[in-house]
Design a protein around this nucleic acid. Structure first.
Lengths: 346, 346
DNA sequence: GAATTTTTGATGTACGTAAATCAGAAATTT
DNA sequence: AAATTTCTGATTTACGTACATCAAAAATTC
């Protein structure tokens, strides 16, 4: 049987009320008495029964997800996963909400965070934009005792409690390595399509990709990065132009969104190319199955959302997180290991 | 605010005691009254507060993991993960235990399951052996109301409640596809090392591998399967002989355990080969980093254990499981996306 | 040493559910 | 219609913790 507060009181030779004061950091306990109680807690190995405590407090955890607006399929998938998790959230005493802000807009993100803090949420999960306003907002959250996790794109160096997403340098490296191996000794140059270098994840992926490509036994020229702003139309134009201008194009790596434009351009001309993209959606799944795309690198939105919830709750309760469980893995999908289509793929 | 039993009682116009009788299937409620209560439950959307219920029942969930004995690193890793999960299990009112039985021994497995049922456990997770005794034992568990999940190797067609592990046909297909792409137009034959065809997972992997290899554009001869019984010494001998006898060997796929023997044989002679194996351990990680192995297919033992616990608890409570969350993914590791070494790799 | 402040104990209620008891009401049988 | 059986209601205790109140004890100050 697990020890309870009663056992601690008996062990420490104090009353239940005193144990309660120590446990919940209430005033009016002498140093020596506090030490006695803490010794009893340690010696008995007491751990607070969070379920019972939450019951007594009738506590709920309001959590906010702040996501970029727009038709980025991955972000919309993330939003869908939050809503799906919300269906079961009552059971876990969690109340989830989603706030969307213009993409790449640091001020809007900071405002949304401040609003959440003012509302008294128990935790914030946000796709971070790399800007000073955001750093400052995170600091304000921290001062208010509101845990913050960054989603998908990290902001290491800030006061965020945790990052939930893949190692984007490794993701880029993986793409480069696969591209090199799949191309083998075939000749030709390689194009890279990105969204914007103003989010860290894109920069990191590029860095990893270039490193892996240059480490390959047979060197291969890489064209200047195309910035498609995660916009399908712009991406289409950039890729179409590239296909026309570069007759010896051997491969394309899209490290951002805008797959729709890329696929549209490839539908016109585009066989024999090695194509590697990010994020498994209905479209990329189809292209993988039909052989237009060779590999899809993916981060599971459902896992990320559930991980964010677990981490924020743990932080809100002052508990530790299981790092191994919360590591978000980079999925490599080829035609042969596609999972059954889930509801989150549009 | 979520509705409580009191709200149902008021809505249905009955007493708390009657609501309790309906909710917990206790006798002494007329059909009409029961229907009234159930209507109230449905209309209010009542969901039992499991935390409060467990508190009231002071319920614990004793769960048993039945794993094969021996020095199979993956199985030992699984055991380690169960023990690790056990450290935190008190918090979740779960009590975990591990029972080991001789590998591939159906009778021993069935006996262990019967013992667990007799002890009154809340759930059983077992690495299934494909035999009639095991089918029968699963049926007995089902009759006793004890949920059973199969781990790693499935037993579809039996009464097991859930399978926790990867799609092994897809795993084999993935290995075949990667092998074909990595080899490109390089000539040479390919060897396959297996443990035993008496466990379903090995058979399924082989099936997928052969299918993917034969679907490749350039056909490639595959040598007869070597059965190493998951034994390092036997595996070493088989591979060493093969290396000596087949001068044009281009690739090796080890779909079972016994990686230690394979690596030992490769250390003697073995560069330029494409090697794909299963299960990330300290050894396979090192071989991946040094370039001896090209890819490692993995199933995360920690995820499997946590998934088994979640599923068994849900089944014990008669709740539904989130299929998307419980799908175990096949990880593809190449040198570039290796995760930081965890404590579960020996 | 008296007055004051600080610390501690004793006790009760609450959270939402489980489970038991016993009395009373309704239905069924005779 | 009486006797019996089957339902239903009212009430209580419990689970482990949170939180509040008030009295009593101990420590501090003057």
């Amino acid at each position: 049987m697990r020890p309870t507060v009663h056992d601690i009181a008996a062990e420490a030779g104090v009353s239940l009320a005193t144990v309660d004061r120590v446990l919940n950091d209430r005033p009016g306990v002498r140093g020596v008495t506090k030490a006695k109680v803490e010794a009893a807690i340690a010696s008995l190995g007491y751990v607070r029964d969070v379920a019972a405590a939450n019951l007594a407090k009738s506590r709920v955890y309001p959590l906010v997800f702040i996501l970029p607006e727009g038709d980025n399929p991955f972000m919309r998938g993330l939003e869908a996963e939050v809503r799906r998790a919300g269906l079961h959230s009552a059971i876990e005493r969690t109340r989830l909400s989603v706030v969307t802000v213009p993409a790449f807009d640091a001020a809007a993100l900071a405002d949304a965070m401040d609003a959440a803090i003012a509302e008294g949420v128990s935790g914030i999960a946000a796709v971070a934009v790399d800007a000073l306003e955001v750093f400052a907002a995170i600091d304000r959250a921290r001062e208010a005792g509101v845990p913050v996790v960054t989603l998908v794109s990290d902001l290491s160096g800030s006061g965020r409690d945790h990052f939930i997403g893949v190692d984007n340098i490794a993701a880029g490296r993986t793409a480069g390595s696969l591209m090199g191996r799949f191309l083998g000794n075939r000749p030709g140059r390689v194009a890279v399509l990105a969204g914007s270098m103003r989010v860290r994840d894109h920069g990191e992926r590029l860095e990893g990709f270039l490193a892996a490509m240059s480490a390959m036994p047979n060197a291969r020229a890489i064209l200047p990065v195309l910035e498609g702003q995660d916009d399908p139309d712009l991406s289409f134009k950039l890729i179409a132009d590239c296909l026309a201008a570069v007759p010896d194009l051997a491969g394309i790596y899209n490290l951002g969104a805008g797959n729709r434009g890329l696929l549209k351009a490839l539908a016109v001309r585009g066989t024999g190319l090695c194509v590697i993209v990010h994020e498994l959606t209905g479209e990329t799944r189809g292209a993988l199955e039909s052989g237009v795309i060779d590999a899809v690198l993916n981060q599971d939105a459902g896992h990320e959302v559930r991980s964010a919830i677990r981490v924020l709750r743990a932080k809100a309760d002052g508990l530790s997180v299981n790092a191994a469980q919360e590591r978000i893995r980079l999925d490599i999908f080829i035609k042969d290991n596609l999972p059954p289509a889930g509801p989150d793929e549009e």
